Amino acid sequence: MNILIIEDDDDICQLYSIWLEENRHDYIIAKNYEDGISEYEKSIHNTDENPKSHNNSFDLVVLDYDLPSRNISINQNGLHIAKKILEMKNDQRIMFASAWPKKAFVEYVSTLKSVPEVLPKPFEKEEFINLAEKIKLYDIAKKFTKQLRDMKNPNNPNVDIKSLESLFKLMNNARREFLQKDNYKNDETDLIE
């Protein structure tokens, strides 16, 4: 996988680097709004120039919800980056890593009419790698996103907060279920060996 990480915390960036290298994934880390957008734009342009070269496009973008901007007067966050990325590629897989997963999820869905994957902070290596490598949860998010975008007025989501909270609970339960199934399979494999 080729992954773009946009995260400003040096310790978390170090963990991402170690984990992704151990699992042989390619990655780029950007530490603010501008660098994240710049790296994403480069990947889009590289792919456009050479359609056979897909090794530069990102399979996954992992965003911190609270991100700084180089320009202090601009108040940007992960939601702004996600919006910009989805304008460039509307089916980009995005995962929010956030200490406020419900807030990030509700704001993302109500603003962008798209359903992100959310990884609650703090998290362990196995949870991050399993979610990054497992496409099933992303497939569920894509189905919800399609339904949201098929609503009559795509620029004005009339989804009430309780519906968004219910959707968050469904996605969170699906995430836990996938992780539990994966851990169960790993336990069975260890017993067989």
Rank of each mutant, 00 (worst) to 15 (best):
M95L: 15
F128A: 04
K89E: 02
F96D: 02
K84T: 11
D139F: 13
I72D: 13
F105T: 00
S69C: 07
N75G: 11
K89G: 00
D91A: 09
K102E: 15
S69A: 09
I94P: 05
I94K: 00
L86K: 03
K143G: 10
K134T: 14
P122A: 06
K83A: 09
N75H: 12
N75Q: 14
Q92W: 00
V118R: 03
E117R: 13
L131T: 09
A99W: 15
L79M: 07
T111G: 04
K89M: 04
K143N: 15
K136F: 14
F105H: 00
S69R: 03
K121H: 09
L131E: 08
E133G: 15
A132C: 07
F123N: 09
S69T: 03
I140C: 07
F105N: 01
A132I: 04
I94F: 01
K134D: 14
L137V: 05
K142D: 10
A82I: 01
L137S: 01
I94S: 04
N71G: 08
P101C: 06
W100A: 15
L79G: 08
E124R: 09
K83W: 02
F144D: 08
F123V: 05
K125W: 05
D91Y: 09
M95K: 02
S98R: 06
V118K: 04
A104R: 03
I140V: 13
D139L: 10
S110Q: 07
E133V: 13
W100Y: 15
E127S: 06
E124M: 08
A97N: 05
F96N: 01
Y138Q: 12
D91K: 13
Y108K: 04
P101G: 04
A132P: 05
S69L: 03
N130V: 01
N75D: 13
S110R: 09
I94Y: 01
I74H: 15
E117F: 05
M95N: 03
K134E: 14
P120G: 06
A97T: 06
E124S: 14
I85V: 06
I81N: 06
K143P: 08
I85Y: 00
L112Y: 00
V109C: 10
I94G: 03
F96G: 00
E124W: 04
A141R: 00
P122S: 07
E133R: 14
E124P: 02
T111A: 11
I74M: 13
A97M: 10
F144W: 13
G78L: 05
R70Y: 11
A132Y: 01
V109I: 08
I74F: 11
I140A: 12
E87V: 02
N90T: 07
A99Y: 14
S73R: 12
L112H: 00
T111R: 13
E133C: 15
F96K: 01
P122R: 09
K103F: 14
D91R: 12
I72T: 11
K136S: 15
I94N: 00
D91V: 08
I85T: 00
N75T: 11
K142R: 12
V118N: 04
S98G: 07
V106C: 05
S69K: 02
G78N: 10
F96A: 04
V115R: 04
K89W: 03
R93L: 06
E126D: 13
K134R: 14
M95A: 01
E87S: 10
M88N: 02
N90I: 07
V118H: 02
P68V: 06
G78H: 07
E133I: 12
K121T: 12
M88A: 09
H80A: 10
K102D: 11
